[in-house]
Simulated scan of single mutants.
Amino acid sequence: MRTLIMIAAAAENNALGKDNDLLWHLPDDFKRFKKLTSGHKIIMGRKTYESFPKPLPNRTHIIITRDKEYCTEYNECIVVHSLDEAIDLVKNEIAFIIGGGEIYKQGEKKSDKIELTRVHGVFEDADTFFPEIDEDYWMLTTQEFHPVDEKHDLSFTYLTYVKKDDALKNL
């Protein structure tokens, strides 16, 4: 069975980034992202893909772009032209939607789970945002707070959401 998970780090105002870059540096969140996504397919928009210096190791990258001529030199990358086309490539496995803002908007109702790192801060100058989580549709199942420390200038909380229908079936 396929499991489609949106994974992101978003500020309290849902800010994700600016100029195709993150607004913070959270090493523990990077480690968590790597642990969760390694060995799986990751779905992203072209701009998110191009924000990496090279493909992330041990993951198949599915890049969504409207550009029919777009290609990449890396074998671990597959180029598609819609989110539905990307989802068709992840039957019977776990896959992660990793951004950007427009791909998250399209993926919210198609996803089974959200792994959100809520960064405790507001970033007014952001140009990319995570969609507002619809509490009628999603249920918060776990949360884990991470305080400011010597490696992290901001506190944050790991939040896991599942579709309410799925959560209620398992009660």
Rank of each mutant, 00 (worst) to 15 (best):
I43V: 12
M44V: 04
G45T: 08
G45H: 06
R46E: 09
R46T: 00
R46M: 03
K47P: 02
K47N: 13
K47D: 00
T48I: 03
T48E: 01
T48C: 10
Y49D: 01
Y49V: 00
E50K: 02
E50L: 14
P53C: 03
P53E: 13
P53N: 07
P53Q: 06
K54C: 06
K54S: 15
K54E: 14
K54P: 02
P55H: 03
P55K: 02
L56I: 00
L56S: 06
L56Q: 08
P57E: 06
N58K: 13
R59A: 11
H61Q: 12
I62D: 04
I63V: 15
I63T: 06
I64N: 07
T65Q: 05
R66D: 01
R66E: 04
K68T: 13
K68L: 13
E69R: 09
E69S: 15
E69G: 05
E69P: 00
E69M: 09
Y70Q: 02
C71V: 11
C71K: 14
C71E: 14
T72S: 15
E73P: 10
E76Q: 15
C77N: 03
C77R: 01
I78T: 14
V79Q: 12
V80Q: 10
S82V: 14
S82D: 06
E85R: 09
D88M: 13
L89I: 00
V90R: 08
V90P: 11
V90E: 11
